[in-house]
Structures are given as structure tokens and as C-alpha cells.
């Protein structure tokens, strides 16, 4: 494991912890898209189908369990927790899941490495992860006033993707058989979706102002 991969995993982990902590301590999910959180739960479920069949490392298994557990907990909080769910703004979070899920599923069925259930599901999870942030970005754009923790959450998620790309570049040069163009394309698309957000995030940070996205 290289430093970029480890840093990427850690920012990913922090992003989830920041979100869980925000929801748990202030009992509010204001500004958080349930649609995005449900898509992530689906991403992790379909990607980690191998969790009990292929052992890679203890680190790998533990991280998978954390991502599965945290994503389902977040969905549970927003849907079921009697205080948290009151802060969920359903009318603003209107992105339709199937606009993303169905095209990704079709793409995964046709464009994959191997036509087996596990492989198609794994590929589907890559495609879906690439676009799963969209409902959240749309919500940020709509609400405009973004609290610090939500801003940090999205920033950490974007940083995780950027670090994974550095990891792939590193692996490409150090591991001769490391070629995986589906991962590459999905990963680059995913990172590009954050470009706009990053721009405004750094602007607000530089000027020491509250983060606001243009209408």
C-alpha cells in the first residue's frame, strides 16, 4: 500500500466520521442528501460482495465493515431517528435515484471485465460511486448556505477521490500489471464532478468567508 492510497482511505474514513458525528451530536442532517447516502449504501453493498469470500487483509476487511456500517447508520439516522429525521428537507432533496442507478446498471451489464454476477455488481458500484454525489451537489446548490461540517464532508470526499487518482498513477508505474481502465475512467469522472465545488471551497477559504455556491 502506498502513501496516496492510505491518505485516500483516511480522508474517505474521515468524511464518513465527520458526517456521522455531525448527525449524532447536533441531531441534525440539514443540508445532507438522503439520496446520496442511500446511493453510497448501495455502492458499498454491491462492491463488497466479496467480503466473506475473498480475504485480502485485515485492514481491508475492517475498512469494508466500517464503510458498510457507517453508510447504513447514516441512512438509518435520516430515515428513522425521531429527532434527526425532522431536520431532513425532503422537498429540496428531489433527485431521483433511478436516473443514476438504471444507467449505471445497464452500463455495468454491457461494459465489464467479466460477465459474472460479482464482477457486474463490482463494476456497477464503480459507475454508481462516480455519480452518487450528484444529489448532494444539487442540494448544496439549492440551499446555498452550507454549514462548515457539510462543506468539510464534501471536501473530504473529493480529496479522497483525488488521492486515489494519485494512487493509481503511482501503481501504474510501480506495478507492471496494474491496468484497469474502467476504474480509471469512473474515478476521473467522479473527481471532475468535484472540480466546481473545490473551486468555491478554496475561494471561501482564501477569503475567509462562509462557503456559498453560486445560484
Amino acid at each position: 500500500m502506498n502513501i496516496f492510497r492510505l491518505a485516500g482511505d483516511m480522508t474517505h474514513l474521515f468524511s464518513v466520521l465527520v458526517l456521522l458525528l455531525k448527525i449524532h451530536t447536533i441531531k441534525s442532517c440539514a443540508g445532507i442528501s438522503l439520496k446520496t447516502q442511500e446511493l453510497y449504501a448501495l455502492v458499498f453493498t454491491t462492491r463488497y460482495l466479496d467480503i466473506f469470500t475473498d480475504f485480502i487483509s485485515l485492514y481491508n476487511t475492517v475498512m469494508k465493515l466500517i464503510f458498510l456500517g457507517s453508510s447504513f447508520s447514516i441512512v438509518w439516522y435520516i430515515r428513522r431517528h425521531k429527532i434527526v429525521r425532522r431536520s431532513y428537507d425532503k422537498d429540496q432533496d428531489t433527485f431521483r435515484h433511478y436516473f443514476l442507478v438504471i444507467p449505471c446498471l445497464v452500463l455495468a451489464v454491457f461494459i465489464n471485465h467479466k460477465f459474472t454476477f460479482k464482477e457486474v455488481m463490482w463494476t456497477f458500484s464503480l459507475y454508481l460511486e462516480a455519480v452518487a454525489i450528484l444529489p448532494q451537489l444539487v442540494l448544496l446548490q439549492r440551499t446555498r448556505n452550507i454549514d462548515n461540517l457539510t462543506g468539510q464532508y464534501v471536501f473530504l470526499l473529493g480529496a479522497y477521490r483525488a488521492l486515489y487518482i494519485l494512487n493509481w498513477i503511482y501503481r501504474h508505474f510501480t506495478e507492471p500489471h496494474y491496468v484497469h481502465w474502467i476504474t480509471w475512467i469512473a474515478g476521473v469522472v467522479q473527481t471532475l464532478l468535484y472540480a466546481d465545488f473545490f473551486y468555491y471551497y478554496f475561494q471561501s477559504w482564501k477569503n475567509n468567508e462562509k462557503l456559498q455556491l453560486p445560484a
Binding site: 474517505h12 475473498d54 485480502i56 481491508n60 464503510f67 463490482w122 486515489y164 500489471h177 484497469h180 476504474t183
Partner: peptide, 10 residues
Amino acid sequence: TTTEPGKDEL
């Protein structure tokens, strides 16, 4: 290792 590319990542 015999792990396929990408499968050892999260």
C-alpha cells in the same frame, strides 16, 4: 499476489 487489479482497493 493473485488479487485482481482494483480488488484490493476500497
